[in-house]
């Protein structure tokens, strides 16, 4: 049982909802993509027009939670944290590549920052190429072939990176609790994110 006095706020309600809805939309996009793409699943599911409709509308909705979430100050603050690298992040990357135990990090470590940046960039790419494929009279056919090519390869990359994201989450119960309840244990925060200055946290050694 976690004691409330030893918890710190990591994610606000708005941030948790943005994560939850984006994750749901992304999973539906990937699942429907698999049903359109992998022959055994396509044979099992069929209903091509329905699957395409679900895929397209979930794809179009993908950036909506984030855009709405930008009205939250906490989310904007975290977004700017995620977008910038500090000297600690470079030290973290060096430590990871040399398998050293001491990995300095602020509220987000360099890996989490790269993951967030990848998510935003790749989401914009699949959204753009998806629009080119969907609005067939928007662009010349050669563009559409190119858009399909990029969309396919990015989808595979997104699925792979997302599998890594989920694996990391499975390995860290406290971080999962942080995303589910918003609260994390102070000792976990000090261990994993030593440079994250929570309000009443002790001075870093």
């Amino acid at each position: 049982m976690r004691r409330r006095a030893e918890l710190v706020l990591r994610f606000t309600r708005a941030e948790r909802w943005v994560h939850r809805t984006t994750a749901t939309l992304m999973m539906i996009c990937l699942a429907t993509a698999a049903c359109l793409y992998l022959a055994p699943l396509a044979e099992l599911v069929g209903r091509r027009r329905l699957v395409v409709t679900v895929h397209v509308w979930c794809g179009l909705a993908l950036p909506v939670p984030l855009l709405l979430g930008l009205t939250s100050r906490a989310l904007r603050t975290d977004a700017s944290r995620l977008s910038r690298f500090t000297p600690a992040d470079r030290a973290w990357l060096r430590a990871v590549s040399r398998r050293l135990p001491l990995r300095p990090a602020g509220k987000f470590n360099a890996g989490q920052k790269l993951y967030a940046q990848w998510t935003l960039g790749s989401m914009l790419v699949v959204l753009g190429t998806g629009l080119l494929m969907w609005l067939t009279h928007l662009a010349p056919p050669a563009w559409r072939t190119g858009a399909t090519f990029v969309h396919d390869w990015f989808a595979l990359a997104i699925a792979t990176v997302l599998a890594g994201h989920i694996r990391m989450a499975i390995g860290d119960r406290e971080s999962r609790l942080g995303m589910r309840t918003g609260l994390v244990d102070r000792r976990w925060a000090e261990r994993e994110h030593p440079h994250w200055q929570t309000a009443a946290a002790p001075e870093p050694p």
Binding site: V8, R10, R84, F85, T86, K107, T198, A199
Partner: peptide, 18 residues
């Protein structure tokens, strides 16, 4: 329970944009 009030120093490299 504490609120995450403090900011990390602004600045740093804009890796996200890149």
């Amino acid at each position: 329970m504490d609120v995450d009030g403090s900011e990390e120093p602004r600045g740093g490299t804009p890796v996200g944009r890149r």
